[in-house]
């Protein structure tokens, strides 16, 4: 029977009591030093997938994360059988073990920064003023990115910061933060938000470390 994947963690662990997608019970599949949390995939009738299902996936991962370090799996991954899951775990065990080391004891916090915009870039304008407005937005974003990185580096173990242009110019950051540093990190965000009167900072989390499981450069 096909199974939905939620997360991978180290060692032999008990599945959390909650349910996975469409109320299917969660269970663990073990291979070597790794375990994958799965549920039986709903079959036959096609189910609507939307926000509720995304939260079911997220809740299942969070339940496991409450007691273990986890590598969250992208939403919607379905494998054919328990055996296929074991095979996948075995063939990628080095990658998963080093990713588990990287995220050990940490969670992910999201920070979005946005600032007021005098004239929306999307409004029809001359080419020159469009480019000017875009250049302003870019230099502003760069300055803000530097400031965020230097202020938040002491509170985080890693970060991913990217520029967003729609619906408006802004920054979207993901920070890998030790669990015992979460409140200090949040306090720093609040401090920065007060200090930067023109910029709005929004922090959400803690999330499972979705943005830090892929490894970067050296670990790929």
């Amino acid at each position: 029977m096909a199974v939905c994947l939620y997360a991978i963690c180290g060692g032999e662990v008990q599945p959390p009591p909650g349910a996975g997608l469409h109320g299917k019970p969660l269970r663990m599949i073990r291979s070597g030093d790794l375990s994958a949390m799965v549920s039986d995939s709903p079959e036959a009738s096609r189910r609507e997938v939307g926000e509720a299902e995304l939260w079911q996936h997220e809740s299942a991962v969070e339940e496991l994360m409450a007691a273990h370090d986890v590598l969250p799996v992208r939403f919607g991954e379905v494998l054919d059988s328990d055996a296929a899951v074991q095979e996948m775990l075995a063939s990628r065990c080095d990658e998963f073990e080093s990713a588990l080391e990287r995220v050990a004891g940490a969670c992910e916090l999201s920070v979005r920064a946005a600032w007021p915009q005098e004239t929306p870039i999307s409004e029809p304008r001359t080419g020159t003023s469009y480019l000017g407005a875009r250049a302003d937005a870019e230099s502003r974003a760069e300055a803000l990115a530097r400031r965020l990185q230097s202020s938040l580096a002491p509170f985080s173990r890693g970060s991913r910061l990217r520029r967003v242009f729609q619906p408006r110019p802004s920054l979207a950051g993901a920070y890998l933060v030790a669990r015992n540093m979460v409140s200090a990190f949040m306090a720093e965000i609040e401090r920065l938000d007060r200090e930067m009167s023109e910029t709005t900072l929004v922090c959400t989390g803690p999330w499972p470390p979705y943005s830090f499981v892929q490894g970067d450069g050296a670990e790929q």
């Binding site: 995939s41 096609r46 997220e58 990713a99 929004v202």
Partner: peptide
Amino acid sequence: VTLIDLLDRLLQGGIVVQGDITLAAAD
């Protein structure tokens, strides 16, 4: 904002097992 953060993470982050995904359950 939380919903967009959720989407960003669940659909663009996380361990990828298969390249392209069509949700089996919903097609």
